[in-house]
Computed example of a mutant assay.
Amino acid sequence: MKKIIFLFSIIAILSGCGLTPVQQEAVSRFAKASGAIGEISASSFSQSRDAVIKMNVMSIAVNGTGDIKNLDGPLDPDRIVQRISATTSLKSYGELLLALAENTQEAELKEASDNFVDSFKSVSNRKLTNEQLESLGIIVREIGGLLVEYKKAQAIKKIVLETEDDVQLICTLLENEFDKHYPGTAMVFNDAITRLRADANIALSEEKGIQNRLIAIEAYQFAITNKEKLDDLAKRIKSLVSSLKKANTQLVGAIKNESHSISDIRAMGAQFKELSDAIRVFSGK
Rank of each mutant, 00 (worst) to 15 (best):
M1V: 08
M1S: 07
M1H: 07
K2N: 05
I4W: 10
I4A: 04
L7P: 00
L7Q: 06
F8W: 08
S9Q: 08
I11W: 05
I11D: 02
I11M: 05
A12T: 13
L14S: 01
L14T: 01
G16T: 06
G18E: 02
L19N: 01
P21F: 04
V22Y: 12
E25A: 09
E25V: 12
V27I: 02
S28D: 11
S28V: 11
R29T: 15
A36N: 15
G38D: 03
S43L: 11
S48F: 14
D50N: 15
D50S: 15
A51K: 15
I53F: 09
I53G: 15
V57S: 14
M58P: 03
I60M: 09
A61G: 07
N63E: 10
T65P: 00
G66K: 10
D67E: 09
D67T: 07
D67K: 13
L71E: 14
P74N: 04
D76H: 10
D76E: 10
V81L: 08
R83Y: 06
R83V: 00
R83C: 00
S85E: 06
T88E: 12
Y93M: 04
E95Y: 02
L98Y: 02
L98D: 09
L100N: 04
E102H: 03
E102S: 08
N103E: 05
E106M: 04
E106I: 04
E111C: 00
A112F: 00
F116V: 06
V117Q: 04
D118W: 04
V123W: 03
R126C: 01
R126D: 02
L128K: 03
T129E: 02
E131L: 09
S135E: 11
L136G: 08
G137K: 01
I138C: 04
I138N: 13
I139Q: 10
I139H: 04
I143A: 06
I143K: 02
G144W: 00
K152W: 00
K152N: 00
I156F: 01
K157Y: 00
L161A: 08
E162L: 10
D165I: 09
D165Y: 06
V167E: 07
V167H: 06
Q168R: 05
T172S: 06
L174D: 01
L174V: 13
E175S: 05
F178C: 03
D179N: 04
H181Q: 07
G184I: 00
G184E: 02
A186V: 06
V188R: 12
A192Y: 10
T194A: 08
T194W: 06
R195Q: 03
I202V: 09
A203L: 08
L204G: 06
S205L: 11
K208M: 01
G209N: 13
I210Q: 08
A219T: 04
A219K: 05
F222K: 14
I224D: 13
T225M: 12
E228T: 12
L230Y: 13
D231K: 15
L233S: 09
A234T: 13
I237Y: 09
V241M: 14
V241L: 07
L244P: 11
N248C: 11
G253D: 11
I255L: 07
S259N: 14
S261M: 11
S263L: 12
I265V: 15
R266V: 13
M268L: 15
G269M: 15
G269A: 15
V281S: 10
F282I: 10
K285E: 14
K285A: 12
